[in-house]
Protein backbone atom coordinates (compact mmCIF):
# COMPACT_ATOMS: atom_id res chain seq x y z
CA UNK A 1 0.00 0.00 0.00
CA UNK A 2 1.61 3.23 -1.16
CA UNK A 3 0.81 6.05 1.18
CA UNK A 4 4.03 8.04 1.03
CA UNK A 5 3.77 11.58 -0.07
CA UNK A 6 6.12 12.06 -3.01
CA UNK A 7 5.65 10.40 -6.41
CA UNK A 8 8.61 10.70 -8.78
CA UNK A 9 7.90 12.20 -12.18
CA UNK A 10 8.89 14.86 -14.67
CA UNK A 11 5.83 17.09 -14.99
CA UNK A 12 5.97 20.91 -14.93
CA UNK A 13 5.05 20.83 -11.24
CA UNK A 14 7.91 18.44 -10.56
CA UNK A 15 10.32 20.83 -12.24
CA UNK A 16 9.14 23.94 -10.40
CA UNK A 17 11.47 24.83 -7.49
CA UNK A 18 10.23 23.87 -4.05
CA UNK A 19 10.36 27.49 -2.87
CA UNK A 20 8.01 28.63 -5.63
CA UNK A 21 5.52 25.88 -4.88
CA UNK A 22 5.49 26.64 -1.19
CA UNK A 23 5.19 30.34 -1.87
CA UNK A 24 2.07 29.74 -3.95
CA UNK A 25 0.67 27.31 -1.41
CA UNK A 26 1.17 29.84 1.36
CA UNK A 27 -0.44 32.66 -0.60
CA UNK A 28 -3.32 30.43 -1.67
CA UNK A 29 -3.86 29.38 1.94
CA UNK A 30 -4.33 32.99 2.99
CA UNK A 31 -6.40 33.83 -0.09
CA UNK A 32 -8.76 30.91 0.45
CA UNK A 33 -9.60 32.05 3.94
CA UNK A 34 -10.31 35.58 2.81
CA UNK A 35 -12.63 34.43 0.02
CA UNK A 36 -16.12 33.17 0.74
CA UNK A 37 -18.00 33.07 -2.54
CA UNK A 38 -18.83 29.44 -3.35
CA UNK A 39 -18.23 29.91 -7.08
CA UNK A 40 -14.74 31.28 -6.48
CA UNK A 41 -13.97 28.56 -3.95
CA UNK A 42 -15.31 25.96 -6.36
CA UNK A 43 -13.09 27.29 -9.12
CA UNK A 44 -10.10 27.18 -6.75
CA UNK A 45 -10.88 23.58 -5.86
CA UNK A 46 -11.16 22.69 -9.54
CA UNK A 47 -7.81 24.32 -10.31
CA UNK A 48 -6.25 22.49 -7.37
CA UNK A 49 -7.69 19.19 -8.59
CA UNK A 50 -6.33 19.88 -12.07
CA UNK A 51 -2.89 20.54 -10.58
CA UNK A 52 -3.03 17.25 -8.69
CA UNK A 53 -3.94 15.42 -11.90
CA UNK A 54 -1.13 17.19 -13.76
CA UNK A 55 1.34 15.46 -11.43
CA UNK A 56 0.42 12.22 -13.22
CA UNK A 57 0.46 10.15 -10.05
CA UNK A 58 -1.02 6.67 -10.40
CA UNK A 59 -4.72 6.72 -9.54
CA UNK A 60 -4.27 4.08 -6.86
CA UNK A 61 -1.69 6.28 -5.17
CA UNK A 62 -4.08 9.24 -5.25
CA UNK A 63 -6.91 7.21 -3.81
CA UNK A 64 -4.78 5.99 -0.92
CA UNK A 65 -3.90 9.56 -0.06
CA UNK A 66 -7.33 11.06 -0.56
CA UNK A 67 -9.58 8.46 0.97
CA UNK A 68 -8.86 9.24 4.65
CA UNK A 69 -9.07 12.96 3.92
CA UNK A 70 -12.30 12.46 2.03
CA UNK A 71 -13.85 10.65 4.97
CA UNK A 72 -12.80 13.42 7.30
CA UNK A 73 -14.19 16.09 4.96
CA UNK A 74 -17.49 14.25 4.66
CA UNK A 75 -17.86 14.12 8.44
CA UNK A 76 -16.97 17.79 8.77
CA UNK A 77 -19.39 18.68 6.00
CA UNK A 78 -22.25 16.77 7.59
CA UNK A 79 -21.56 18.26 11.00
CA UNK A 80 -21.37 21.81 9.66
CA UNK A 81 -24.53 21.35 7.61
CA UNK A 82 -26.38 20.06 10.67
CA UNK A 83 -25.06 22.53 13.20
CA UNK A 84 -24.91 25.58 10.97
CA UNK A 85 -26.32 25.71 7.47
CA UNK A 86 -25.77 24.17 4.07
CA UNK A 87 -24.18 27.33 2.59
CA UNK A 88 -21.50 27.47 5.26
CA UNK A 89 -20.92 23.74 4.89
CA UNK A 90 -20.42 24.01 1.13
CA UNK A 91 -17.99 26.93 1.48
CA UNK A 92 -16.03 25.09 4.13
CA UNK A 93 -15.92 21.92 2.09
CA UNK A 94 -14.69 23.69 -1.05
CA UNK A 95 -12.15 25.77 0.83
CA UNK A 96 -10.63 22.79 2.66
CA UNK A 97 -10.75 20.63 -0.45
CA UNK A 98 -8.91 23.30 -2.46
CA UNK A 99 -6.28 23.71 0.22
CA UNK A 100 -5.76 20.00 0.74
CA UNK A 101 -5.54 19.34 -2.99
CA UNK A 102 -3.02 22.15 -3.41
CA UNK A 103 -0.92 20.81 -0.56
CA UNK A 104 -1.18 17.37 -2.12
CA UNK A 105 -0.05 18.72 -5.50
CA UNK A 106 3.00 20.24 -3.81
CA UNK A 107 3.96 17.21 -1.75
CA UNK A 108 3.32 14.81 -4.64
CA UNK A 109 5.76 16.67 -6.84
CA UNK A 110 8.47 17.82 -4.44
CA UNK A 111 11.31 15.50 -3.57
CA UNK A 112 11.69 15.32 0.19
CA UNK A 113 15.32 16.34 -0.24
CA UNK A 114 14.30 19.53 -2.04
CA UNK A 115 11.69 20.21 0.58
CA UNK A 116 14.35 19.91 3.25
CA UNK A 117 16.75 22.19 1.45
CA UNK A 118 14.01 24.74 1.10
CA UNK A 119 13.27 24.61 4.82
CA UNK A 120 16.96 24.84 5.60
CA UNK A 121 17.28 27.96 3.48
CA UNK A 122 14.12 29.40 4.97
CA UNK A 123 15.41 28.94 8.50
CA UNK A 124 19.02 29.95 7.81
CA UNK A 125 18.43 33.56 8.95
CA UNK A 126 16.95 32.28 12.19
CA UNK A 127 19.96 30.00 12.62
CA UNK A 128 22.33 32.90 12.15
CA UNK A 129 20.81 34.73 15.10
CA UNK A 130 20.87 31.50 17.08
CA UNK A 131 17.13 30.94 17.28
CA UNK A 132 16.96 27.70 15.34
CA UNK A 133 19.11 24.83 14.24
CA UNK A 134 18.44 24.19 10.54
CA UNK A 135 19.60 20.58 10.67
CA UNK A 136 17.14 19.86 13.41
CA UNK A 137 14.34 21.58 11.59
CA UNK A 138 15.07 19.70 8.38
CA UNK A 139 15.24 16.41 10.20
CA UNK A 140 11.98 17.24 11.92
CA UNK A 141 10.28 18.00 8.64
CA UNK A 142 11.53 14.81 7.05
CA UNK A 143 10.36 12.82 10.05
CA UNK A 144 6.89 14.28 9.67
CA UNK A 145 6.96 13.31 6.00
CA UNK A 146 8.05 9.87 7.05
CA UNK A 147 5.56 9.34 9.82
CA UNK A 148 2.39 10.75 8.31
CA UNK A 149 1.96 7.91 5.79
CA UNK A 150 2.97 5.38 8.40
CA UNK A 151 0.38 6.62 10.83
CA UNK A 152 -2.24 6.27 8.11
CA UNK A 153 -1.07 2.74 7.41
CA UNK A 154 -1.08 1.79 11.08
CA UNK A 155 -4.49 3.30 11.52
CA UNK A 156 -5.78 1.02 8.78
CA UNK A 157 -4.01 -2.03 10.19
CA UNK A 158 -5.45 -1.51 13.63
CA UNK A 159 -8.91 -0.90 12.27
CA UNK A 160 -8.76 -4.07 10.23
CA UNK A 161 -7.43 -6.09 13.15
CA UNK A 162 -10.24 -4.82 15.36
CA UNK A 163 -12.87 -5.39 12.71
CA UNK A 164 -11.57 -8.93 12.28
CA UNK A 165 -12.27 -9.49 15.97
CA UNK A 166 -15.74 -8.07 15.58
CA UNK A 167 -15.05 -4.80 17.38
CA UNK A 168 -17.08 -1.80 16.32
CA UNK A 169 -15.15 1.31 15.35
CA UNK A 170 -14.40 3.05 18.63
CA UNK A 171 -12.13 6.12 18.66
CA UNK A 172 -10.46 5.25 21.99
CA UNK A 173 -9.85 1.64 21.04
CA UNK A 174 -8.29 2.89 17.81
CA UNK A 175 -6.28 5.78 19.18
CA UNK A 176 -4.60 4.08 22.11
CA UNK A 177 -2.81 1.36 20.14
CA UNK A 178 -2.10 3.86 17.38
CA UNK A 179 -0.37 6.23 19.77
CA UNK A 180 1.50 3.45 21.55
CA UNK A 181 2.79 1.95 18.32
CA UNK A 182 3.74 5.28 16.87
CA UNK A 183 5.65 6.27 20.00
CA UNK A 184 7.47 2.92 20.01
CA UNK A 185 8.43 3.35 16.37
CA UNK A 186 9.51 6.94 17.07
CA UNK A 187 11.71 5.67 19.89
CA UNK A 188 13.37 3.16 17.57
CA UNK A 189 13.83 5.74 14.85
CA UNK A 190 15.43 8.09 17.38
CA UNK A 191 17.92 5.35 18.22
CA UNK A 192 18.61 4.76 14.54
CA UNK A 193 19.25 8.47 14.08
CA UNK A 194 21.68 8.47 16.99
CA UNK A 195 23.38 5.36 15.68
CA UNK A 196 24.14 7.17 12.46
CA UNK A 197 26.00 9.98 14.19
CA UNK A 198 23.35 12.68 14.11
CA UNK A 199 23.83 15.65 14.43
CA UNK A 200 26.36 16.59 11.77
CA UNK A 201 29.35 18.63 12.89
CA UNK A 202 28.76 22.37 12.74
CA UNK A 203 30.16 24.11 9.70
CA UNK A 204 33.09 26.46 10.38
CA UNK A 205 30.78 29.50 10.17
CA UNK A 206 28.42 28.09 12.77
CA UNK A 207 28.25 28.56 16.49
CA UNK A 208 28.94 26.08 19.25
CA UNK A 209 29.38 22.38 18.55
CA UNK A 210 26.46 20.26 19.54
CA UNK A 211 28.50 17.16 20.18
CA UNK A 212 26.43 15.03 22.49
CA UNK A 213 23.01 16.58 22.45
CA UNK A 214 21.46 13.74 20.49
CA UNK A 215 21.87 11.20 23.26
Amino acid sequence: MNTSLYVPGDTPLHRLPAGAKFGVLFAAGIGLFLLAHPAVLGAAAAVAAALVLSARAPLGALRARLLPVGVMLAVLFAATALLQDAGTAVAMLLRLAALILLALAVTLTTRPADLLEFFERLTAPLARVGVANPERISLGVSLVLRFVPEVFRRFQEIREAQAARGLKANPVALLVPLIVRTLKAADDVADAIDARCYPPPRRPSGGARTEENAT
Partner: peptide, 11 residues
Amino acid sequence: DNQIVFPIVAE
Protein backbone atom coordinates in the same frame (compact mmCIF):
# COMPACT_ATOMS: atom_id res chain seq x y z
CA ASP B 1 11.38 0.07 8.87
CA ASN B 2 12.53 1.91 11.93
CA GLN B 3 16.11 2.19 10.81
CA ILE B 4 15.37 3.87 7.51
CA VAL B 5 14.79 7.52 8.30
CA PHE B 6 14.30 9.15 4.93
CA PRO B 7 11.60 8.47 2.35
CA ILE B 8 13.94 7.91 -0.64
CA VAL B 9 16.70 5.30 -0.51
CA ALA B 10 19.49 7.58 -1.76
CA GLU B 11 18.53 10.28 0.76
